[in-house]
Amino acid sequence: TYTWNTKEEAKQAFKELLKEKRVPSNASWEQAMKMIINDPRYSALAKLSEKKQAFNAYKVQTE
């Protein structure tokens, strides 16, 4: 089980997950979700809006 003390740690864990699963920077949210949804870190960020925000930040960083 994973635990995160801060929102920032949770966001980092979520981005690490995207990186580890090699989600391409041109992937849509739907494509990315299919690649990461079974990992416990997918739940790091509770709100869908937070997940999408972190995903978009990840995409910008990896382009």
Rank of each mutant, 00 (worst) to 15 (best):
E8D: 08
Q31S: 09
T3I: 11
E63P: 10
L45M: 08
W4C: 09
L18S: 00
N5K: 11
F14D: 00
T1W: 09
W29D: 00
K59P: 02
N5D: 14
A10M: 07
N26A: 08
E9L: 05
Q53S: 09
I37P: 01
A10H: 04
N5I: 12
S28Q: 06
T3D: 12
N56Q: 13
S43D: 12
M33H: 10
P40E: 08
W29F: 10
V60F: 14
W29H: 01
K34P: 11
F55K: 01
P24G: 03
E16D: 14
E63N: 13
P24E: 05
K51M: 07
E50C: 05
L18E: 00
I37A: 13
L17R: 00
N26V: 07
I36F: 02
M35T: 05
M35L: 11
A46S: 13
S28L: 06
E8L: 07
A44W: 03
L17I: 03
E16F: 05
E50P: 01
K51C: 05
A13E: 04
K52W: 05
S25G: 13
N26G: 09
Q12T: 12
T62N: 12
A13W: 04
L48M: 10
R22P: 03
E63C: 13
K19H: 15
Q61E: 15
F14H: 00
E8S: 09
L48A: 07
A27H: 05
W4M: 05
T3A: 09
K51I: 04
T1I: 14
A44M: 04
A57Q: 11
M35H: 06
P40R: 07
P40S: 05
R41A: 04
P24I: 01
E63H: 13
L18W: 01
W4Q: 08
W4E: 08
E30N: 10
K21V: 07
A32I: 04
K51T: 02
L45E: 01
M33F: 05
K19G: 12
W29C: 03
Y2P: 15
R41V: 03
A57W: 10
K11G: 09
A32C: 12
I37W: 12
N56A: 13
Y58D: 01
K19P: 00
A27N: 03
E8N: 06
T1N: 12
V23E: 01
F55C: 04
T3K: 10
Y58I: 03
E16H: 07
N26M: 06
F14W: 03
E20H: 05
S49R: 12
T1L: 12
Y2N: 15
A10S: 06
Q53K: 13
S25R: 13
M35F: 06
Q12L: 13
K15F: 15
K21G: 03
L45T: 01
V23I: 07
S43P: 06
V23H: 01
A10Q: 09
N38L: 09
K7D: 09
S28R: 08
F55N: 01
L17K: 00
W29Y: 07
I36V: 05
T62D: 10
I37L: 11
T1F: 12
T62R: 06
A46N: 14
L18F: 04
Q53D: 13
E8M: 06
T62Y: 13
A57V: 08
F55W: 07
W29T: 01
Y42P: 00
A10L: 03
K52R: 09
V60C: 14
K21F: 08
E9D: 08
P40G: 06
S43T: 10
V23D: 01
Q53M: 13
R22N: 14
L45V: 06
S49M: 06
L48C: 09
K7N: 07
K21E: 05
E30S: 12
A54R: 01
A54M: 09
K11P: 03
I37N: 14
T62H: 13
K7A: 11
L18M: 05
M35A: 07
K11C: 15
S25W: 11
K59S: 05
L17A: 08
E20T: 04
K59F: 04
S49T: 07
R41T: 06
E9F: 03
R22V: 07
S43M: 12
T1M: 13
E16S: 08
R22C: 11
V23Q: 01
T3Y: 10
N56H: 13
R41D: 01
N5C: 14
F14C: 02
K52T: 05
A10R: 14
N5R: 06
L45G: 00
K51G: 02
V60A: 14
K51E: 01
D39F: 01
Y42E: 04
